[in-house]
């Protein structure tokens, strides 16, 4: 599904990703953990096509195609989804109108018929249930004045509507209380159908109690320094990141 090979990226001449390798197969859930500032969001942004970042080396294969050659919208249309760590507030653009435009663009690109108003509403209603998102958020401006939890739920709702092949969730758990966390995790688990792949970026192990990963990777200073199974996350929870940092620094 997604094969990242020696990916290096920088911003404003500052090297941030220093050779990432990752192989994500259909239906797999990979967790990426690591201390703040290690490059997790940068990796997510580079994969989604944010132009502020300079790709300095490596390649990324997405379903047989060169991901790095595509515009952000092409990536989305081909089935890559990024749930933002900080969803952007956009006054004047209604959540519904935006989604309808986005969903229909993605459908068009996939050779599917765009939804008419009625079909779209029906689809919305169904997908809203997945994250029990409030109807009142639909007519409001995109993320404007949404609470932290509402924003994150809205991201997962967008994901459900856009039906991606691969979803990257960047700290979707941060700022959520335990109830909201459960709802968001349930939403993700509902969409975990054995075909769709996930990259779950998180700082804490907590989320992984609910979204159980197949693999766990630790990103530190722009490199994946350790990979394992879900037990690695538990170990990190117990011992913190220091022992890994020591292990890495000790090796240098």
């Amino acid at each position: 599904m997604l094969k990242i090979n020696d990916l290096k990226a920088s911003i404003e001449d500052k090297e941030i990703l220093k050779g990432i390798n990752l192989d994500i197969k259909e239906g797999e859930v990979h967790a990426i953990m690591g201390p703040n500032g290690s490059g997790k969001s940068t990796l997510a942004s580079v994969l989604a096509g944010r132009e502020d970042y300079e790709v300095d080396g490596g390649d990324v294969d997405f379903d047989g195609e060169d991901l790095l050659e595509m515009s952000p919208e092409e990536r989305a249309q081909k089935g890559l989804f990024l749930a933002f760590q900080y969803p952007v507030e956009i006054p004047g653009v209604s959540n519904t109108n935006f989604l309808r435009t986005a969903v229909n663009e993605v459908r068009k690109a996939r050779g599917e018929e765009p939804y008419n108003a009625a079909n779209f509403m029906k689809e919305m209603k169904e997908k809203m249930k997945i994250v029990s998102i409030d109807k009142s958020l639909m007519s409001r401006s995109l993320n404007e004045g949404f609470s932290g939890g509402e924003k994150k739920r809205n991201e997962i709702f967008h994901m459900a509507m856009l039906d991606p092949k691969l979803a990257i969730l960047d700290e979707t758990d941060s700022g959520l209380d335990i109830d909201a966390l459960r709802i968001v995790a349930n939403g993700v688990n509902t969409l975990r159908d054995g075909n769709r792949s996930f990259v779950v970026v998180t700082h804490y192990q907590r989320l992984l109690d609910y979204i159980v990963p197949d693999f766990v990777h630790v990103l530190y200073k722009g490199k994946i320094v350790k990979s394992g199974t879900k037990e690695l996350a538990l170990e990190l929870e117990e011992k913190g990141y220091d022992w890994i940092i020591q292990e890495v620094e000790g090796n240098n």
């Binding site: 944010r50 515009s71 952000p72 919208e73 989305a76 990024l82 935006f98 435009t101 986005a102 993605v106």
Partner: peptide, 18 residues
């Protein structure tokens, strides 16, 4: 906002117009 809209599949021109 431009990146946010594009990352959801909306083409650049349309995102700008929106």
């Amino acid at each position: 906002p431009m990146f946010y809209l594009r990352a959801r599949g909306i083409p650049e021109d349309q995102a700008r117009a929106l």
